[in-house]
Write a protein that binds this DNA or RNA. Structure first.
Lengths: 233, 233
DNA sequence: CGAGTATAGCTTGTATACAAGAAATAACTA
DNA sequence: TAGTTATTTCTTGTATACAAGCTATACTCG
């Protein structure tokens, strides 16, 4: 959430369009490098170019879209190196959230954390990666919230969402689901026990390992399946 | 830099306007709570409403401006609590940059760091807060760059710029300038010595203390001088 | 006289029109 | 035939026109 959605329910059309396009990017419907033609999108969504353009500008600010003057908008293609950097920061933000959460956790927040953790466990037992993926987000978000630093929580969530398409691939890796859950378990125990530094360290490695694994993944595949992979600069 | 300025020198008009308005916000020419009338700005800058609007949307995404549907744009007024949260995160980002810089510093980067530090020293000796303020930014940016994590550096810089108007007030505090410099000095030595954890800790407290001091400052003043202080939500 | 409501004016949000630059294609020359 | 240049076409960037909603003012009714 980058300050646009104020939670009051009312949204400009450009903001709805932004979310719609963001969703398509996250799901891979618009793969990295995809050209985003303003007129095309306008007719597709049944609006004029103006709100589409405003949506693209917002996505550009969020880093999901690259706009070069007079040369149109592309879905940002994140090269491996930058992706690792993003995971490296994500790991630090998660660690910070965990450390603060261990110090500041309220009973209600603890309950929410345990509930999210329990839900993940069920998805693991069912061997359902999609459900786990969704519940995993809940789990992490409950930690962000428990940090009692709303700004940090927003930033963490924003980066989390930005990494979402890449994170999703993770859970296809063999046994990753089980390992992920057991890592969660250790994190939960550390937070509940109030061991901030330990929670931070566990979360850091939990996230960073994803970045490393992902780097391995794309190193083996030379290219993503449907990505034209245009150079960003 | 939120992905808009690609460094190629070419910028849309809306991006120039964004920077111009951001500058006015940073310098306090447009104080928090200030209404930003699109038509007014358009005539003032000699353009139509369209690029102004696009600039405001970008500033909204960056969190410097609040836009409520059909109710116009305001300069975001950050309440003390949120400001502390932002400083808390800033401290962590700086710490992370420092830790990585200590590990990864190249000779060229070391030279740049020392040059920036030396320039700060001169400003301190001259007792020139404005010069120090400007050079201080150079100093911190040289650390961001030395982290060798470009994404982190961008995020740190973005937050740094967002806190700029508040940080500026800091240096008016008695002796803050001298204390700031001596803190810098310790940081530099830790980084050059390759002591990552120490650099991180020094930077964290260097930044966090600003947040705390600022909280004190605005706690004493019940209100900022020229700020209508509209509730953000 | 006060409160509530209607109306007028003004600002934002969206559509459309127009201008300018980039890419692609076609024509021309060596 | 290949390379270069001119032209055409298409897309973006900006201006303007129009519609819709909020605010404030004035008016009416209790």
């Amino acid at each position: 959430m980058n300050g646009s959605n104020d939670g009051s329910g009312q949204m400009r059309r450009s903001e709805q369009l932004r979310d719609a396009i963001e969703e398509r990017i996250a799901t891979g419907a618009y793969p990295p490098g995809q050209r985003l033609d303003e007129t095309e999108l306008a007719t597709e969504f049944g609006v004029s170019r103006t709100p589409i353009r405003e949506a693209l500008i917002q996505l550009n600010s969020a880093g999901l879209v690259v706009m070069r003057p007079r040369r149109g908008a592309l879905v940002a293609s994140i090269e491996p190196r930058r992706l690792c950097e993003m995971f490296e920061l994500m790991a630090e933000l998660e660690a910070m959230c965990g450390r603060l959460a261990a110090r500041r956790l309220s009973p209600a927040e603890q309950e929410r954390l345990l509930a999210a953790h329990g839900a993940c466990e069920q998805a693991r037992n069912a061997g359902d990666p999609d459900a786990y993926f969704r519940l995993n987000e809940q789990f992490h978000q409950s930690i962000y919230g428990a940090s009692h630093n709303e700004f940090l929580a927003e930033q963490a969530l924003q980066l989390h969402r930005r990494l979402r398409p890449y994170r999703r691939l993770q859970l296809r890796v063999r046994d990753r689901l089980k390992v992920s859950f057991s890592e969660h378990d250790a994190v939960v125990r550390a937070i509940v026990a109030g061991e901030g530094d330990r929670a931070a360290e566990l979360l850091r490695s939990h996230v960073v390992v994803q970045g490393e694994r992902f780097a391995d993944l794309i190193a083996s595949l030379s290219q993503l399946p449907s990505a034209p992979t245009e150079k960003t600069a």
